[in-house]
Design a protein around this nucleic acid. Structure first.
Length: 216
DNA sequence: CTAGTGATTCCCT
DNA sequence: GGGAATCACTAGC
């Protein structure tokens, strides 16, 4: 018997904790995206922590800008950014108002609305790939900058909501260095700030950051 | 499975 | 001006 996942929204206090405490606790939670066509729900399997203005890998490192404004606001809200000219990625803001820490949602298992997710993720070869990677997850859920600042503590039925779900026990959580972050990898100064559900097939492959510049 | 590279645009320096 | 918290595709093992 598998217990029915708890569909109560998480509290504001859940997010108002140190980011390294919140990040592994997000695994197994349910992220519900309600669209005009119906809901899409993802069970989170992989996340990465970003520790505010003191973290060189964080978008908040160089201070407040129009893009990262939401990171500096109250916990429990969604920070969405656009990158590589094509993709969106989503974070959940943690810690007290002003602390600017956040958790990047890197991957999950689509457990409801897979038919809707497939229409946005035409290149996915199977359902395990629907949300396997941060931009894939945002694409599968139909998340873009118009949802920047959305309150994820809101009840199910709003645009985005994080439900209690079934948290993954800490002995089934693995951790390692962050993926694709400039300044990490190759210098030994690597923090185990990526967390994932051990052995889960929806977790994205690790990729080191590759510095690149414009072609002629 | 890993490694290499083009795509495409916003944002900050 | 130039890099970016990535993906899709290709080649090769």
């Amino acid at each position: 018997m598998i217990a029915t996942p708890d569909r109560t929204p998480v509290s504001r206090a859940f997010f108002d904790r140190p980011v390294l405490e919140v990040a592994p606790d997000l695994l197994g939670r349910l992220l519900v995206r309600t669209t005009p066509d119906g809901p899409i729900t993802v069970r989170l399997t992989e996340v990465e922590a970003y520790d505010g203005p003191n973290d060189p890998g964080s978008h908040a490192y160089r201070g407040r800008t129009p893009r990262n404004e939401v990171m500096f606001g109250p916990p429990g809200h969604v920070y969405v950014y656009f990158t590589y000219g094509m993709w969106h990625c989503m974070n959940l803001v943690c810690g007290p108002d002003g602390s600017a820490s956040a958790v990047l949602l890197r991957a999950g298992e689509v457990i409801e609305g897979a038919d809707l997710a497939r229409t946005r993720r035409l290149s996915a070869r199977n359902d395990k790939e629907l949300a396997k990677g941060p931009a894939r997850l945002a694409t599968a859920l139909g998340v873009d900058r118009t949802l920047d600042g959305t309150d994820a503590c809101a009840p199910e039925g709003g645009p985005l909501s994080l439900l209690t779900g079934t948290p993954i026990p800490s002995d089934q959580v693995s951790n390692g260095p962050r993926t694709g972050v400039a300044g990490e990898g190759g210098n030994g100064d690597v923090h185990p700030w990526r967390f994932w559900a051990a052995g889960d097939p929806t977790v994205s492959p690790y990729r080191a950051h590759v510095p690149r510049h414009r072609r002629s």
